[in-house]
Design a protein around this nucleic acid. Structure first.
Lengths: 386, 386
DNA sequence: GTTGCTACCGCAAACGTGTGCATCGCGGGG
DNA sequence: CCCCGCGATGCACACGTTTGCGGTAGCAAC
């Protein structure tokens, strides 16, 4: 065997002389340039380089400038992993979503990434596949990576995290926790108020038989939105009819099936309040498949206000979640937690009903409908323990 | 259920007696349990613990079992950062997308995350905001994190990475590179073939005045798709009319504006081939706003086959990109590169025309249109340098 | 009894950075 | 002349792992 690039420690003589001439026999990873390399080049100790690069006042401005110049020229990039080891802070957060392919999750993720990036944090992305067990797994994995904090959206675990977290010792904030009961730190949308507003709007348009298409998973947002629907009915003196409350799977396919069942009822609804926009997507397809029109024959509302909602035909009346903003808020809360502040707790963000053209007066005639001006109303905003 | 097993450090002798007794002036992060802790508990050296935990044959199965049990009970989680420092491999990849909120990007990201997770890799997510300068920045940041590899989708930098990469010394694969010219490792969709197929399909339906709504950014996918459109025209003996090729911004808003211009032409088109589904979304809205119908008055095609395409009214005829699969392929290629293999290069994946109901024969009568069976055709698949 | 082999296990040195503390040169005040 | 202070820098250690290598039993073969 040829010798393996003997590491010579020639301290004083010719520091940059015979560079490590890696021979291309095997692709030698050609060690990254380290802080010691540029210390040698600058003829100072490596701590001085470290200090110079982080603008410490302890180092002479002149030498600092010189060091920075050399580091720049050598293309030196400090190793975040070595730094993380000694400082015990990685400036990294973990983000777990059900799946990035979900438009709600990706919108929230976008806000989080933005805020994280602005504060010098990098974000680990992980999918939970909407499975509690897998979610726990990826959280554990993130903990092994020594992330400084964790955000999980639509958690299936929720307050069950408490024992694990006590051991892991890493702050966590939840976005739209799906687990019944309250988690310590979370940002939640006003599900009940939003769903209630949508239903009340439908009732206000004269509808008496308004249905609800939910998510059979039975998680927290589902139960809250269903509750909002029921409250609106109760307030209007309309008795809740279990036959009008059906359940899809939160996705268009399942929603379409559920909607079909609704349409086959002896006395079908004239309006339907959907669990979310994806559900509305499927519901509208099922409605069209029966040769019915929205909103002339049937009014439809959604929840989320995903990007495509306003481009549907007809544009979808829906309850808006400020998804990006919610992501930012989650990140801001996490930043506080990571810096030691412990004040912030649950924050509940207001939902906003966006009226478009998928809703109309009951029994409305086909034709040029009124120009919906997109009236909005804020709902249920507020925060506790702020 | 396993009982809670309180963490007791009072093993026996006092090896950990007067350990560095840091005074708790500031909130002490309560040091994570390390490999040495459990080495002490198991009365072995910490290297033995290390080997036991990675199932090394060098350690006695009995002691290994004992060690694992103790580690489990103590809730020990090895530090990936410490490991990364010594092994010089972080088992981490960086993923940079224009923005996660983009449905195309998030679909690709989903495939990547999946494949990465399957192989024990974690993924750093970063947004480039579709800006070349920012993209370079985040790639640098990822390099500082010592990721083992990088994937960037819709790169604005492309082969300009070469010098930087030579210095960073980290493998990179591009998905749908937007920079003219070829990058070393990439997975690309067959843009030209796909766009050409869509246009040919329209022509086959009798359309002669078929327009193109592009993306004014003028990046690579745009030019290729435009080229495919032109080729189809040429093949059919239709002269390219510059007035029929307009440019939005790849998003619904800009596309709607561009489409309006098209509709105000003295001789408006009877069909329009859109740069992507988002563009089609805007185009269709603009068409409806003029009181025209799709496909009776105007046929529309998209590109991507985003999840909502089949739920539009009418369902969108579009060119499918297997986005998840492309993400997986990118990750698989990256895995090979990271393991030292250097064979894989550009792979071009076939596009598939999905015929739905947004397209019809020119001058078709309103009414129940034929049941589009969703005929498909694979296009332009292949790989080079495999 | 020496040798050699095998199966385990510990020592020590890394990996690249941050940081408390000692050191050093030097100017000024006593 | 001595001492003190101060600004600038280096020393040494720590962070939590992995890994090459040397050591030590136990045992069999000679």
């Amino acid at each position: 065997m040829a010798e393996k690039d003997v590491k010579k420690k020639t301290s004083s003589g010719a520091p940059g002389g015979g560079r490590r001439e890696v021979r291309p026999t095997k692709q030698q990873p050609s060690r990254q340039v380290s802080i010691k390399d540029i210390a040698r080049l600058a003829r100072v100790s490596h701590p001085t380089v470290s200090r110079a690069l982080q603008n410490s006042p302890l180092v002479n401005p002149a030498t600092a400038a010189k060091i920075r110049k050399i580091a720049e020229a050598a293309g030196y990039r400090p190793s975040a992993v070595a730094r993380g080891l000694v400082t015990r802070r990685t400036r990294t957060v973990g983000l777990v979503v059900t799946t990035v392919a979900d438009p709600f999750a990706s919108a929230v993720a976008c806000g989080i990434e933005q805020a994280a990036n602005d504060h010098g944090y990098a974000v680990f992305l992980a999918n939970s596949n909407a499975d509690a067990e897998h979610e726990r797994k990826v959280v554990q994995a993130l903990a092994e990576r020594r992330v400084d904090g964790i955000i999980v959206t639509s958690s299936r675990v929720g307050s069950d995290y408490l024992p694990m977290l006590a051991q892991l010792n890493v702050p966590m904030v939840l976005v739209n926790d799906q687990y019944p009961g309250e988690f310590v730190h979370s940002v939640m949308i006003a599900n009940e108020e939003g769903s209630r507003a949508a239903t009340e709007y439908l009732i206000g348009m004269g509808h008496r038989r308004v249905a609800y298409v939910g998510d059979r998973s039975g998680y927290q947002t589902e139960t809250e939105r269903l509750e909002g629907y029921k409250r609106a009915l109760a307030k209007a003196g309309i008795e809740f009819d279990a036959k009008l409350a059906v359940h899809g799977d939160g996705r268009p396919e399942g929603a379409a099936e559920a909607m079909e069942a609704l349409l086959q009822l002896a006395e079908p609804p004239t309006a339907v309040c959907c669990y979310n926009d994806m559900t509305a997507l499927g519901a509208m397809r099922a409605i069209r498949a029966r040769g019915l029109r929205v909103p002339e024959d049937l009014s439809v509302t959604g929840f989320d206000d995903l990007f495509f909602a306003e481009y549907l035909e007809p544009p979808l009346t829906t309850v808006r979640q400020p998804m990006r903003r919610m992501g930012e808020m989650a990140m801001e809360n996490l930043l506080k937690l990571m810096s030691g502040e412990d004040s912030v707790a649950q924050v509940k963000v207001g939902a906003e009903l966006i009226v478009r053209k998928s809703t109309g007066r009951v029994g409305m005639k086909p034709g040029p409908q009124m120009r919906g001006t997109g009236g909005t109303q804020g709902l249920g905003a507020g925060r506790r323990n702020g």
